[in-house]
Design a protein around this nucleic acid. Structure first.
Length: 515
RNA sequence: GGUGACGUGGCCGAGUGGUCAGGCAGAGGCCUGCAAAGCCUCCUACGGCGGUUCGAAUCCGCCCGUCACCUCCA
């Protein structure tokens, strides 16, 4: 069977289109990464998950993938175009807020970069081929700015270098913000540079020798504008024609609009064919914000500290959720639709992820047991996989793909006995499902997770001894028909957070999930 | 005001002209000493008003509503 056609919604054309890579069967794309001035939140990661799913889907249909995903570690102004009287930027603000923790702005950026990469791996995101840092490409950015000036697309003032929007006819194509009056000076500039020629013009370089990060340039000491880094790093690693660019919906304007203007002015032609944008998520029906108490970083949910009291108590009590449950939750909504992140969805996701893991264990045991027999489930699982892939190729329809995956795991659960042949089919399906959706098992070994699991094993063992003792006692009571005593023991265990289940194969127990 | 996305059962969420989504919650049943888990069954919706059609959740128009961007934000 030939693989389905991979289709994605292209913001540039407002249509869902077949993805046709410039190089046959080789998708090359750029993903806008984070500014590393704080911990990334679950909304940030919704966007990175989209990029990851594009990669996985492309790989699943047999394509090669080259992905560039940047780290923005330059402190840009809090207002894009503003020469702030106080010279504040996000990273400087963060440094002032947390001054004692970091020796300087580079320290701060390093810390949050490291944290970001840990979260990235925890959520089973595959590594990009290139992960460039903005600070390591400032010279390249300078060259690009010089070239834009030379080509007549930019001009200098005392305060910096600006891109001349008038020099680029197609400005506004991506966002629809074509009318100049939409960008009134009062809207865009809090402090106007009197020498700016058009209110729509945006900064390529800021003259500011006092900025915490500054570099030498033909226009004196200063730092680059926000938009130029992505243009430069994208074209440096992917060339002046590549396939696709991803980011959050807020980046459509101004960031990507400006990036297109820069790219095409530098290259002289269209550089990127497809633009894919992920919608913001809401939390419990509201915009995520610290003041509403519904603002979650990734680490809030997977590894909350005792003092993180904005994290719901059930999550804190059980020491955080499985990162894959968080990932699975994010798959419950298609990237282009509004998505309401709720505790309820997270709870359900945790249960479903557990089912995949249980099925995976059962399959491994069946392979070990090596019992001869027929394989009645192989074809069903193959069909499930086809539907998953079809759904993913249809503009990353993750809810439909997840539904098909759930059907597959059900097929494995319901199989009475797993012959070794059936188990191999199941193993194959689970592996391919994990390749496509990343929801079965972690693909990275992280220090944090191995430490945590080690601890869990230790405390688990300790707990297990006392639980087993109580269960033996209960079993004895049950055999003697002393059900009142047996139930009392069960109540005791329940109070300890242990759930008891009597199965045909004997009594089993597990930690009750608090969610 | 400009631009864009979206509006499906108690909740989440598939579905682009005529047969089923799926999940969660809820109800009943099987199983169980009783539970739990699991399994089976049930709950049949498409914002409103027009239009096209033999037939519309699905196409068209208008209206209403939600969200987002237009200042940094994924």
């Amino acid at each position: 069977m030939s693989p389905p056609t991979f289709r994605l919604y292209n913001t540039l054309t407002h249509e869902t289109e077949p993805v046709e890579p410039i190089e046959e069967e080789h998708l090359r794309f750029y993903s806008c990464g984070p500014t590393v001035y704080t911990y990334a939140h679950i909304g940030n990661f919704r966007s990175f998950v989209t990029a990851d799913l594009i990669r996985r889907t492309a790989e699943a249909i047999g394509w090669d993938v080259t992905n560039v995903s940047n780290i923005t570690d330059v402190g840009h102004l809090t207002q894009d175009d503003l020469v702030d009287p106080g010279g504040e930027d996000k990273m400087k603000q963060a440094l002032e807020r947390e001054g004692e923790r970091f020796a300087n702005i580079y320290d701060l950026a390093r810390h949050y970069t490291k944290a970001f990469l840990e979260d990235w791996r925890a959520l089973n995101l595959r590594e990009p081929e290139v992960r460039p840092r903005a600070t390591e490409h400032v010279t390249d950015q300078l060259h690009a700015v010089i070239e834009l000036v030379e080509k007549g697309h930019a001009y200098t003032t005392d305060q910096g270098v600006y891109f001349s929007v008038e020099s680029f006819d197609d400005y506004g194509h991506l966002s629809g913000n074509t009318q100049a009056q939409q960008l009134q000076a009062t809207d865009r500039d809090v402090v106007e540079d009197p020498d700016k020629q058009d209110p729509r013009d945006f900064a390529l370089w800021k003259h500011d020798p006092d900025h915490l990060m500054h570099w030498h340039s033909p226009w004196g000491w200063g730092y680059p504008g926000w938009h130029i880094e992505c243009s430069v790093m994208g074209m440096q690693y992917l060339g002046d024609r590549f396939d696709l660019h991803t980011g959050g919906e807020d980046l459509i304007f101004p960031h990507h609009e400006c990036e297109i203007a820069q790219n095409q002015s530098l290259a002289g032609h269209q550089v990127i064919n497809y633009w894919v944008h992920t919608r913001f998520l809401q939390v419990e029906g509201e915009k995520m914000s610290k003041s509403k108490g519904n603002f979650y970083t990734v680490r809030d949910l997977i590894n909350p500290g005792p003092e993180d009291d904005h994290v719901p108590a059930p999550i804190r009590k059980q020491g955080g959720v499985d990162p894959l449950a968080l990932r699975y939750t994010l798959l419950q909504g298609q990237y282009r639709k509004p998505f309401n992140f709720t505790l309820d969805t997270l709870r359900t996701a945790a249960r479903h992820v557990q089912r995949f893991q249980d099925a995976s264990e059962r399959v491994d045991e069946a392979i070990e047991a090596n019992v001869d027999g027929p394989d009645p489930i192989g074809p069903q699982l193959g069909d499930c996989y086809d539907r998953m892939l079809e759904a993913m190729c249809d503009d990353l329809n993750t809810p439909a793909a997840a539904a098909a995956a759930l059907e597959g795991v059900k097929v494995i659960e319901q199989a009475d006995k797993l012959s070794v042949a059936a188990a191999h089919s199941a193993r194959h399906w689970l592996d391919r499902t994990n390749d496509l959706l990343g929801i079965v098992e972690p693909e990275h070994e992280t220090d944090a997770s191995s430490e945590a699991s080690e601890q869990e094993v230790i405390s688990g063992d300790h707990l297990a001894d006392s639980v087993e003792e109580l269960l033996d006692e209960r079993e004895a009571a049950r055999t003697d028909g002393e059900y009142a005593r047996a139930d009392a023991i069960r109540d005791t265990l329940e109070a300890l957070g242990i759930e008891v289940m009597d199965t045909p194969d004997g009594t089993e127990w597990q930690r009750k999930t608090e969610l």
